[in-house]
Structure formats: C-alpha cells, structure tokens
Amino acid sequence: MIEKHAEHLDGIAALAERYDVFLLDQFGVLHDGQRPYPGAVEALSALKRAGKTVALISNSGKRAEPNERRLLKLGFEAGSWDHFVSSGEVAWRIFTDMAREGTLPAGTRCLLISRDSDRSAIEGLPLVLTERGDDAELVLIAASEGDRYDLDHYRGLLGPAAARQVPCFCTNPDRIMLTAVGPRFGAGEIADLYERLGGSVTRIGKPFPAIYEAALALAGNPARGDVVCVGDSVEHDIAGGQAAGVATALVLSGILADSGDLAGLFDELDAHPDYMLDAFRWR
C-alpha cells in the first residue's frame, strides 16, 4: 500500500535530477542531534555542487545562527546550504515587528521554556524574563527538556499562566524529539499541555504556512513544481510541504525509523509523500 503513494528512491541524487530547490529538515534527516547520519555530510555538499538551492527548514526554537554553528561543529561543510530558516528565527522576526508596531510593549514579562538555558529566541526583544507562571504576561515555548523533566514539571510551571489565559507561542511544534537517551516528548507536547490547562497557543513552524513562506521567499519564490521538501515527520514535513504545494520526500532515518504501519499513518494524517528514502545519502 505504501508503494501506491510513494516512489522509493535509493538516494537524493534521483531527486536532484528532478528538482532545483530543496527544503531540508535537519533533525532526523541530516543528524540525530549528536552526530551526522552516515553519508549525510557528503550528500548535502553534493547537492550544492550540483547547483541546487538548499534551504534548511527546522522546527528549532533557536534562531538560525546557533543552529548553523552546530551543523559546522557536527562536521557539515560551510557553504553546503544557502539559507537556514528556523521556527525560532521566524518567530523572532514576528516579535520584532510586533515591538516596532507597539503591540508587544517594552518590559513584557516572558516565561521562556527553552533548552540548555538558550536565550537566542528573545535576544534583542523588549522582554523581561520571569521564571513564574503566575506573573508572566507572555509564554514562549521554544524547546523541551523532556529528557530531564516529566510533564508534571511543566504542568506546575505553566498552570498558573494558562489559568489566566496568558498568550502562548510555541516555536517548535514537534511532539517528539530525538535525544541521547532516546525519543522524548517535544515542545509541541508541552504546547498541547498548555491548551489542556486552559490556555491558547499560537504555533510557529512546520506544518504551518509562515515558515514555508519565509523559506520560499529566501529561495526567490520559485515555481512550486521545482521544489521538494525532505523530512522525517509525516505530521510536520510531509503535511507542511503538501500544504505549501511542493513535492515531498520522507526519510526513514529519524522518528519513523522503527515505525510499522506507515500507510495507516499517511491515511490518518491525510499526508502522503511523493517519495521515500531509507536515509539522506547521495546514492
């Protein structure tokens, strides 16, 4: 049944023969957060040598620059991508515009949910950090530390803010994340918890339109038939790329590495990839 929906390819060289613009996920496609997948460094460089436009598009609550630094540290070649578009970067630009327009007042108290004390999501914004949900005026869920805490930790932190209907933004809608100790709940699951606690959430990132609009604009607004979106999540990469009107390729090296009924998942989410690859490699 899977073959009915998707053409299986041995590597992205076959996609390079058909498309000029690549929107690539990073986690689960290029690397697992600790190291590159076998062949991924070489495949990314080969795409650029083939003259393709490469935009990395990631549900990372961090801004583009720290994400790019990490790729270089992991061994990816400088210049092997043209643009990096993270949901954190898109959100930062939205907040910057809100501050300029006066809809985000200076001194707004922000409860930031991030990872490893990362503050890049709010650098340069007129926000004052708070660690308390009972006096927050804005909640920003940029990342999860689900490998350190359970959901009860976040329930206690966020409950008072949700009860007061404090506006919440989630800049990483992924419900599952890959960690050194295996899959854990992601920032998207924390956002779902905030809603269950009575709050409302604005999600920025895949599969929502703003991040694709930003990436395609940076790529020069190409014809949609010239673009392919490559990722490891049906819910985010395939559904989002499909909604953006571009071709999609599902890589089975990430969160779906041990998945069973993929056809059922495609039907459940009404998101069917055009292509499937076992890994992000050239051939």
Rank of each mutant, 00 (worst) to 15 (best):
G79A: 03
P66N: 00
N172L: 11
F280T: 04
L104P: 05
G88W: 09
A99N: 04
G264M: 01
L193S: 11
G79V: 05
K206F: 15
A6I: 03
K4E: 14
D118W: 03
G75M: 03
L158M: 11
G11P: 09
L193E: 07
E213M: 08
L265W: 00
D237L: 02
D135F: 04
R164F: 14
D270L: 09
F169C: 07
D152V: 08
L158Y: 12
I122E: 04
A249C: 15
R196N: 11
I12T: 06
R70D: 07
R115A: 00
P105Q: 10
H236A: 07
A191T: 09
L47T: 02
L178F: 06
A257N: 03
R281A: 11
W282M: 05
R281Y: 04
A219N: 06
G61N: 01
L158C: 10
S253W: 04
E42L: 01
D135N: 15
W81K: 00
P273Q: 08
L9T: 02
L9W: 07
Q26R: 00
L30G: 12
D10E: 13
G240L: 10
R70S: 10
E268H: 12
A180Y: 00
Q242I: 11
D192E: 12
P273A: 10
L111K: 03
D147S: 08
D152Q: 12
E213W: 11
L218D: 08
Y154K: 06
A247Q: 09
L269D: 02
V85G: 01
L15F: 06
A14I: 07
H236R: 06
P38M: 05
I57G: 00
H5W: 14
H5G: 10
L72C: 01
T108I: 13
S259K: 02
P222A: 12
W92Q: 13
G225L: 14
Q26I: 03
A43S: 06
L269S: 02
S58N: 10
G102M: 08
S86I: 01
L111Y: 04
N59F: 10
Q26F: 00
Y275E: 03
V85M: 00
T96N: 09
